[in-house]
């Protein structure tokens, strides 16, 4: 096969890929966008948020876990997928306690940005109002589990980029929760430091820096004016303690 160009159709556009790449990798490399929350190009694949579902023939497949194949016909911007993604977002909002008006990440939050883009106005699912524990024991990083979407990005970033093992997910189903791997279960007892990737990649406001928040005025934050499908999933340095952005 060497020398042959491999490509698949993505909403009618030809996307080139190298052997072993997922649909997601190939599309992002080609400058396109597929909605996602648990995927990050520097990390192993988790495949849990399901927002990156695309239609291949008659099947719905998650773009981050499906290898690209030559001649594939992939559909992304179609109304049935928009409706499915909207429902997924509404479930994520209903499952946690997402009070955007008081959240440090508001305006820079990827969950919120996807909801804005898909035109979500409310959740059609009963709001759960779960009781979850917050953790303010760390000197610089605050953990608010109310906003956690169990995407496991911090878990993977800690293990794969930081060479540590600060976070894990425990429990099953609706009881799944972010757990801290320390004797007392507190963030302050771990070896997490502010420069760690795991502290700077949270797509929502679950892991936030204690200092320097609300530095931007409303209407001047990233997703106030930019659509996420055009900018990609980003967490600006201004909400990550001023440390450089770990971009996609």
């Amino acid at each position: 096969m060497s020398g042959m160009k491999s490509a698949f159709s993505f909403d009618g556009i030809q996307i080139a890929f190298t052997s072993g790449q997922s649909i997601m990798q190939a599309v992002l490399d080609g400058g396109g966008y597929i909605p996602h929350l648990c995927y990050h190009p520097q990390l192993s694949v988790h495949g849990s948020c399901r927002l990156c579902m695309v239609k291949v023939g008659d099947r719905y497949l998650s773009a981050c876990t499906t290898e690209a194949q030559n001649g594939m016909q992939v559909e992304n911007q179609i109304s049935e997928l928009r409706e499915l993604r909207l429902k997924l977002l509404e479930m994520l909002f209903a499952e946690g306690n997402h009070f955007c008006p008081s959240c440090e990440l508001s305006g820079n939050c990827q969950l919120q940005a996807l909801a804005y883009e898909l035109g979500m106005t409310h959740s059609r699912f009963p709001l759960q109002y779960p009781t979850r524990k917050r953790d303010g024991s760390h000197a610089t990083v605050f953990l608010d589990r109310d906003r956690c979407i169990n995407c496991e990005i911090c878990v993977r970033a800690s293990r794969e980029l930081d060479g540590k093992n600060v976070f894990s997910l425990s429990g099953r189903g609706s009881d799944t929760a972010l757990q801290i791997n320390s004797e007392d279960g507190r963030l302050g007892s771990t070896d997490l430091i502010a420069t760690d990737s795991s502290a700077r990649l949270c797509p929502v406001g679950a892991l936030v820096f204690k200092q320097g928040n609300y530095a931007e005025r409303p209407n001047e934050r990233l997703y106030d004016t930019h659509i996420i499908s055009e900018t990609g999933n980003r967490r600006p340095a201004v909400v990550s303690g001023g440390y450089p952005e770990l971009g996609e």
Binding site: F93, N97, H98, F99, P101, S102, T121, H122, L127, Y129
Partner: peptide
């Protein structure tokens, strides 16, 4: 926000 998801008053939930 309050009409749609309870908003700040729902922090007491």
């Amino acid at each position: 926000a309050c009409a749609i998801n309870g908003g700040v008053p729902a922090l007491r939930n």
